[in-house]
Amino acid sequence: MKPVFMTYTKKDIINFIVLMVLGFLIIPNVVTNNYWFTSILIPWLCLALASVGQQIVMGYAGQLALGAAGFMAAGAFACFNLILRVPDLPFFGALTLSGLVAAAFGILFGLPSLRVRGIYLMVATLASQFFIVWMIDKFGWFKNYDSSGIITAQNIIIMGKPYTSPVSMYLVVAFVVTILTLLAMNMVRGSSGRNWMAVRDMDIAAESMGVSLLKSKLEAFAISAFYCGVAGALFAFTYLKSLEPVAFDIKLSFKILFMVILGGLGTINGAFIGAGFILLFPVLLNFIGNNVFHGTIDATIISSIEQIVFGVLMIVFMIYEPLGMAKLWETIKIKISSKFKK
């Protein structure tokens, strides 16, 4: 297909317009149940954004990092402190700056990636996870000397108007996620993205072809952390509505890792599919537990079933479809369309 705008084909643009109409016009007007906004759509978009960050560093640049939740915590608390301490800072300004704070941490903890790879790097990024959460927990300044440990997030105020209803918060999140996703899609198609993929496929070969490992690896870490930071701030301000370091523990990092792997490494839409699956599956399981078995199944059993299913899926995908659900979706689409052509 011929590209009509930049490198995008007509189909891409139609898809984009359909998604935008769906996201910004249809959903806010059709969905009236607040549960959908507060418990599904908002966390889905926030976690998908974090997964896009993880996708950049892991799926594109091939660096096995496991500290997404740490960067999310950095972003969330940076946003809280910026709004608290800087008067008249617009919300989007605070959001951008908190992303930059997270990016600074990303560069710092991305430094080991210049020396090590694979599991070694994973351990190094675990340091960021534990260190950031510990730092926020131990120094009262970050929490504004709140002794209860749980701080209520400020209301989102844009241009003097408060955005506190579920629908309006959803729109804010959707807006940010759209912009950042578009940027990410362009980045991975552009020279940075190509460099990342070259590094991922064989870093020594990439280096000998003139790709600067230093630049592209640190760039990937910084941008990934930026995305995670913004996602963390949105997550805290629109979904949790409170800030506590415990919310950003290693479990969240693992969840984001799962989203990226199950969704499909090296695809942006995989981040969204994976986040949707990881988020919705427990909801579905609880629903079945409550409505089919009428609560006769213990909640711990349900959560262990959830774990087993995630684990099994992870192994199954590694064996049969290492490119994840995004690739599975493509394959199904091709199969269906070829059936119709016959």
Binding site: L64, S303, Q307, V312, M318
Partner: peptide, 20 residues
Amino acid sequence: DTLLMATIGLGFVLEGLAQA
């Protein structure tokens, strides 16, 4: 790296089983 990810999955299965 693929094997590593598969063992992460294995870990989740074992944890879930033990809990169940």
